[in-house]
Design a protein around this nucleic acid. Sequence first.
DNA 1: AGATTGTCTGTGAGCGCTAACATTCCGGCG
DNA 2: CGCCGGAATGTTAGCGCTCACAGACAATCT
Lengths: 345, 345
Amino acid sequence: MADVGRLAGVSHQTVSRVINGSRHVSPSTRSRVLAAMEQLGYRPNSIARALATGHTKTLGVVSSDSTLYGPASTLFGIERAAHLAGYFIVIASMRALDRGTIPEAIDRLRLQGVEGILVIVSDADAADALSEVSPDLPLVAVVAGPDRGFPIVSVDQVEGARLATRHLLDLGHPTVHHVAGPPNSLEARQRIAGWRATLEEAGAPVPPPLVGDWGARSGYHAGRRLAREPQVSAVFVANDQMALGLLRAMHEAERRIPDEVSVVGFDDTPEAPYFTPSLTTIRQDFGEVGSRSLAALVRAIEADHSAADHSDHRPQEGSIVAPELIIRASTVGHAATSLAFDERS
Amino acid sequence: MADVGRLAGVSHQTVSRVINGSRHVSPSTRSRVLAAMEQLGYRPNSIARALATGHTKTLGVVSSDSTLYGPASTLFGIERAAHLAGYFIVIASMRALDRGTIPEAIDRLRLQGVEGILVIVSDADAADALSEVSPDLPLVAVVAGPDRGFPIVSVDQVEGARLATRHLLDLGHPTVHHVAGPPNSLEARQRIAGWRATLEEAGAPVPPPLVGDWGARSGYHAGRRLAREPQVSAVFVANDQMALGLLRAMHEAERRIPDEVSVVGFDDTPEAPYFTPSLTTIRQDFGEVGSRSLAALVRAIEADHSAADHSDHRPQEGSIVAPELIIRASTVGHAATSLAFDERS
DNA sequence: AGATTGTCTGTGAGCGCTAACATTCCGGCG
DNA sequence: CGCCGGAATGTTAGCGCTCACAGACAATCT
């Protein structure tokens, strides 16, 4: 920087002013400095700047290392939004999102100098552990469920489950069976809650939900169980992968879909239209969740910088994204909802 | 740090020595310092350390923002390995991996102070652009194809395609049709090459490959085309998602699988066993690719630190991971390869 | 005994930048 | 004509840490 200044005939501080776009630099000086920077191939050192300013322009994302469609999509939504906002994303993934690993990951990121943290969390225990994290850093959670003292952004899981269940009831099914996600998953719990509430409101019996682990395999096993029960006519499966397994099991058992059994999934993965039959499901806009959560975090950070009172770093504004019912052939057999329809959209 | 030193009755430098595990600190001093750190809640500032040492312990990953199974799995493999090696990962994703965006992303990361860069690249033009990136930073590419002047880690795509094609030929099919990935994808090209070479070696005719875009939808359209041609008895599809679409199209056309048409996919996504029928495919160990590429990068960086000669930052050691054929019901109908088999493993 | 080695600790400088204040210069005002 | 204020620039002092060196002291060797 001093070299640039020397070449341009100014002080290092004026170079700094040019870099930071200060208004108090004359146009001629500015262009001389820019030329000198160009000539010397100067690149500002963001580490030194971070040390001097205390701002790293870096955010941490804590995530499971799962390659499930949801978390991965959310992560990329976050990265895109961060890029636009001028922030970098450093990731701390973990095999298991349990009570212990969350604080550890947050600590790693804190040491690394991030200005704020986004946690993509599904496990209930892990979410509880979040409340105990010391609030010295802005933090936003992408997590289903009730308020926990920091901003939350997520898709409305209860509403999604309601849409799915109501759709099946509206089709005339006496009740709707449910293949749930793992018991520790907050999303799974919320989907159970939405499903149950909708059945109860309709006065329909509430069969015991089967429990899966999000994987196609567990959906397959649930499907085998359900296929054996002749009265099962409608199933709401808590994600598309499990729904795939269930479709497979129904196919093996020669239970025709949707004539004998209607199936609704959750997520609307890109493959869902190409299942056999194509899957009615609940679309979640993960990209939107990612960008909204990032926006909330950036707001919190920038409020923090301007606020004199640095006591509470946990702003309250969260955001709920609405889910959407996508009707396909696993619930309704007629042409308007066939593949051809999907292909147009 | 000075405060800690004062409390422990030593200089700041001794505190630094304790933090960095220097051997030249007496046990009693060390424990006094540790106690003082604990008492004051001291956290070392990694930014300041990075400024002083020049090492940020941070690596950049350039990746498309796709949520395809392959790139996402590789990314998490990288993160896991980086964690173990004591490095942080900052990601720079991009919508389109074309010629222009790669250098831009690398520049962003460079400014941010990363010590090395991993590029997960599929697009041929983007890979070409890589060769023009100034070699002032260690760089490892996760990319299919020939040597380009920097270390490459990938799965052997040609071999994978050979395994798939040979498997189908061994089953007695006169030839094997191919649904390829997008023309710009290096993986797609390598898979075409392996498929074509295997057919030619066997003296089988080489039908023109159909072109897809990795999405299930394009596989579906390819499937509709192929289903119309009665002589088609074996299809090698360049990834599992497209294979799903193709299975769907065959099902609609009432072409029975594997009796009339045998299908092999590529990737072995977690869902592949639950397609209808379950999909024979080529397994790629993406996690292994991730960790090997990280290891190669870390080696390059650490060689760099110790080497007096800082002229060439492009070590030549790459690594090729072997693919594996997973036989399931889309090519062989008998019991040994049914779901039950998969479930055991 | 003196010289030599080794261990432990302290001192000062500086990594590259920005914040705060100081200075210069200029035009416009009474 | 002198004074004031604002724009442009310079000066100084850190940000929190590590590096290179220097010093103190004990143990070992000749």
